[in-house]
Design a protein around this nucleic acid. Structure first.
Lengths: 195, 195
DNA sequence: CTGAAACCTTGATCTGGATCAAGGTCATTT
DNA sequence: AAATGACCTTGATCCAGATCAAGGTTTCAG
């Protein structure tokens, strides 16, 4: 309903809010993309060309291992970023996929545009530093949990901290995100739901 | 070149190199700390007050779970950073420990000093953004490996990519870092070493 | 409306890695 | 030089979670 660019600008209010000049620069240097369910924003072998900000919908980023098994690394819902940062910055082919789980709307900032924003408006350096720091902390916690907690505990934690995702995303994908098989997740759910 | 501050300045040459003004600002706003073996830079319950850059030695960051088991989250050797970013920025008590595995020398930048550097010299925003981006990518890869590879593969990968650490750090700590028990790591080593 | 694909469940069996237990080798300290 | 504790190894047993197999339900494109 509201303009996707607008949503993105508002998002930055959570950090150092953008002044009008920065807002219009951002609008000029980004573009809206709409994806249908199962549409890809990135596929293995391609260079990840843009930082994507989710305005509406839900996406996942995953890898396929040598046995052909998928491993979900990240979900992104409204107001979250999704990008293969390694591929994006090095401009090297990615080993990841980014796929829409629902019809989705994202705002994309391509590599040269982001660099331009960084150097022309240092506030973007600052804001993206803070954004990544937060993601980094989350990721560290996830890795610690992966090593320190049982599948049951990890699932309980996921449901508690991402109730939206738990309801929105098929179990197969949650299982893969947590590092268990779909069968085992099903059993966990069965156990959990009796009381 | 043996001056720890000097080593830190040189480190930034890998990113946007610092000009003389930035170098002297950095020197003024950081301080050298020496730790003996088993000395702590951070303990559970304390606020992590500083970003630490390792000039010499080797440290680890870990958590102790409710059963009293340690889980190593990160090692840091010469020219690497170690900090609980979450605790540092939120100025909240940490749940982590940072301990020297050897007598070590680090350069510390405290919270107010880093903020001052960020606002006074925006290049630090940029450089720390890039530093964290790199760490973030590494962490993502580790999490993917944790979910997609066997203990044997993870250990092989560790030895290949961190031969220095593999030789320097006791097996117990490597095991914990990889998410296996020391006993199992010992068996992996036995298997691996017979050609 | 229909068929195929996506998704979930449940049972039977198997296995990578954990746990428990014991002994052995170094270093450091006293 | 003994003693303490850190570190590594090896064997026996156990279990959380994987794998394999089958059937059931919902979703949706044609």
């Amino acid at each position: 309903m509201t303009d996707p660019h607008e949503v993105l600008c508002v998002h930055f209010d959570r950090y150092l809010a953008l002044d009008p000049a920065e807002q219009s620069a951002l609008k000029e240097r980004s573009r809206v993309r709409r994806l249908k369910r199962r549409g890809f924003l990135l596929q293995e072998g391609e260079v990840c060309r843009s930082y994507a900000f989710v305005v509406e919908g839900c996406l996942r980023m995953y890898e396929i291992d040598e046995k052909g098994v998928e491993h979900n690394l990240q979900f992104a819902q409204e107001n979250e970023w999704i990008v293969d940062i390694g591929s994006f910055h090095a401009e090297k082919p990615s080993s990841l996929f980014i796929e829409a789980l629902e019809p989705s709307t994202v705002v994309c900032i391509e590599h040269p545009d982001l660099l331009w924003l960084y150097t022309e408006h240092p506030k973007f350096d600052r804001n993206f530093r803070v954004i990544i720091e937060d993601l980094f902390v989350e990721l560290q916690q996830r890795l610690l949990r992966r090593n320190a907690s049982s599948a049951e505990q990890r699932y309980a934690h996921f449901v508690q901290h991402h109730p939206g995702l738990a309801a929105r995303v098929p179990g197969v994908h949650i299982a893969s995100y947590l590092g268990v098989t779909p069968e085992f997740l099903s059993r966990l759910r069965a156990k959990t739901s009796k009381h």
